[in-house]
Computed example of a mutant assay.
Amino acid sequence: MSLGPYASFIVTSYAAAAIVVAILIGWVMLDYRNQTQRLRELDRSGVTRRSGRSAVDTP
């Protein structure tokens, strides 16, 4: 397969896009882990979610 005179530009562009996508996936995975850890800590400290209350429980 021949990419012609622009082969280096094409390969570099695809590599850069792949690196950006990989970084974004890693960022989302780390953020998910941090958010679930924060939720566990809040649950342990007694903070409840508003969605967990019924309409009768509202003041």
Results as ranks from 00 to 15, higher is better:
Met1Lys: 00
Met1Ala: 11
Ser2Lys: 00
Leu3Met: 06
Gly4Arg: 09
Gly4Ser: 03
Pro5Asp: 04
Pro5Phe: 04
Pro5Tyr: 03
Pro5Thr: 02
Pro5Ser: 01
Tyr6Thr: 07
Tyr6Glu: 05
Tyr6Pro: 08
Ala7Asp: 14
Ser8Asp: 15
Phe9Pro: 02
Ile10Asp: 05
Val11Met: 00
Val11Cys: 03
Val11Leu: 04
Thr12Cys: 07
Tyr14Phe: 15
Ala15Trp: 15
Ala16Cys: 08
Ala16Ser: 10
Ala17Asn: 12
Ala17Gly: 08
Ala18Gly: 08
Ile19Leu: 10
Val20His: 11
Val21Arg: 15
Val21Met: 12
Ile23Leu: 01
Leu24Pro: 04
Leu24Lys: 07
Leu24Trp: 00
Leu24Ser: 00
Ile25Leu: 03
Ile25Arg: 05
Gly26Val: 06
Trp27Thr: 03
Val28Ile: 15
Val28Lys: 13
Met29Val: 15
Met29Tyr: 10
Leu30Tyr: 11
Leu30Met: 12
Asp31Cys: 04
Tyr32Thr: 05
Asn34Val: 04
Asn34Ala: 14
Asn34Asp: 14
Thr36Asn: 13
Thr36Arg: 11
Gln37Val: 07
Arg38Thr: 04
Arg38Gly: 09
Leu39Met: 13
Arg40Gln: 01
Arg40Leu: 02
Arg40Ser: 08
Glu41Gln: 13
Glu41Lys: 14
Leu42Trp: 13
Arg44Trp: 11
Ser45Met: 11
Ser45Pro: 02
Gly46Trp: 02
Val47Met: 06
Thr48Trp: 12
Arg49Cys: 10
Arg50Met: 15
Ser51Cys: 10
Gly52Pro: 04
Arg53Gln: 12
Arg53Thr: 08
Ser54Phe: 04
Ala55Lys: 09
Ala55Thr: 15
Ala55Ser: 13
Val56Gln: 12
Asp57His: 11
Thr58Asn: 11
Pro59Met: 07
